[in-house]
Amino acid sequence: MAERPKALIVGAGIAGLAAAWWLDKAGWSSVIIEKAPGIRDGGYIVSLSGPCRDTVERMDLGPRLSEVSYKFDENVLSDVHGRRLLRLRYKDVHGGVDSLALCRGDLARALLDALPTSVDIRFDETLEDAVLRDDKVTATLKSGTVIEADLLIGADGIRSFTRDRFWKEADCLEHLGYMYGVYDVEGNTELGSDCVSFNSPGHLDVLYRLRNDRLAALHIWRDDGVKLHDRQGKPRVIRDATAGRNITLIKDVLDRAEKTGYTPLIDSLTMVDLQSWSQGRVVLLGDAAHCLTLMSGQGAGMALVSAEILGKELMRTSDVAEALASHERKLRPVIERLQDRSRRMAAMYIPKSTFSYYLRNLLLKIMPYSWIVSWHVNSTKSEIELMQS
């Protein structure tokens, strides 16, 4: 029996884990390295619909993911004074589209448990250097191990070491001008709805219920880049960002989180825009290649779709360069459309200026609910149609 071609995958997030699964179907073996000591649990809610939903069904993950999915009824958006601006019912917004709402950590855990025996996963390990040749990639790891692979996959997130090693596009990061912080806390806080949001000029705070008497919080605030160095899990950053907005519920949740010594995930809303996602036998997947930001709601889903496309292209041909080119040709139009949507969604949900904020609020008050729903439904359906084309 011929030896399987080998892929070295940097990063055990959604993109890396899904890629290893699909590469196994293509007859490849994979080594995944991950700098963290294990799979990151928790995380904000991601939505899988359309082709993303179809991908997890083809991976036989549908039943497991359905068990851990959330059934949110509505999101109530209020202004900084607590006055309701909009009540969005999820069944209306999704327009009948079959979707799964999942914690990112639950999705990652399901992917990890589904990995076949052809995958070797190593935690507490990083890529130190890699040399690209015509037919191989020679990689040196932090442990001193040297791996010779037929393909190097950078699935190591928006601040990808793999991308920095092989790509020289210094301006590939597009900051949308916002920071975000996400965490969860214990407690039975009464929200009055499955999900509540508070909006003020340049700010959005979202709270939603999780299982086991836990509450998740997401804060997004205007930041044009001067504080990006503060992103390393510093709770004070979120406290400062929410200061000045007299929202008792937000204050109470932050107080409770700080008492437990929480460490929030803090980062910028930044997209990645590259001219090409592959070079020779190196390819970037997921956020490393085309971060959509959480505004799109499709980052995890598109990582799954991308992994499936790559795996099927490697099934179709043994020519790695051809497979990588075809993968990008099929996926890029969808990604560009979703990145445009991220820009529009940020401007709509978190207006930066006071004038834009009050104008948006006025429009929400006078605009028929059916128009707002139609905008969301048509956006979702157009994305699905594009992905299926």
Score class of each variant (00 low, 15 high):
Arg163Lys: 14
Leu23Glu: 10
Met345His: 07
Asp124Ser: 15
Asp194Thr: 02
Leu127Met: 10
Leu141Pro: 08
Asn212Trp: 00
Gly233His: 06
Lys381Ile: 13
Pro201Cys: 02
Ile309Ala: 08
Glu34Arg: 07
Ile247Gln: 13
Ala18Tyr: 08
Ser379Lys: 09
Trp167Phe: 15
Ala217Tyr: 01
Ser197Ala: 10
Pro264Lys: 01
Leu269Thr: 07
Ile39Glu: 13
Thr260Val: 09
Arg214Asn: 13
Ile372Leu: 04
Glu125Ile: 04
Asp273Met: 09
Gly181Pro: 14
Val182Leu: 03
Leu85Cys: 10
His290Met: 11
Leu107Tyr: 05
Tyr208Pro: 00
Ser160Leu: 07
Lys142Ser: 14
Lys234Asn: 15
Asn75Tyr: 01
Gly144Phe: 12
Asp255Phe: 01
Ser278Arg: 08
Gly280His: 01
Asp24Trp: 04
Glu190Ser: 10
Val334Gly: 03
Ile247Pro: 13
Val146Met: 01
Lys168Leu: 15
Thr126Cys: 14
Gly280Ile: 02
Val146Trp: 00
Glu34Val: 12
His219Lys: 01
Lys312Ser: 05
Arg163Ile: 13
Glu34Gln: 11
Val56Tyr: 09
Leu85Val: 01
Glu174Phe: 09
Arg84Asp: 01
Ser276His: 10
His175Tyr: 12
Leu115Asp: 07
Arg316Trp: 04
Arg4Cys: 08
Glu322Ser: 13
Ile384Met: 12
Glu174Leu: 09
Ala26Leu: 03
Ser374Ala: 15
Leu210Ile: 07
Met271Ala: 14
Phe166Lys: 01
Glu125Arg: 10
Gly42Glu: 00
Leu249Lys: 05
Ala101His: 14
Ser143Asn: 06
Gly95Asp: 02
Ile45Ala: 05
Gly154Tyr: 09
Ala18Cys: 11
Leu304Gly: 12
Asp287Met: 05
His376Ala: 15
Val377Gly: 14
Asp73Gly: 10
Leu65Met: 13
Ala216His: 11
Val283Leu: 11
Asp92Gly: 00
Asp24Leu: 01
Leu77Lys: 00
Cys291Asn: 08
Thr55Leu: 06
Tyr180Glu: 02
Lys35Thr: 15
Leu23Gln: 11
Gly105Lys: 05
Glu383Ser: 14
Ile9Arg: 11
Glu148Cys: 02
Ala323His: 01
Arg122Ser: 12
Ile121Trp: 04
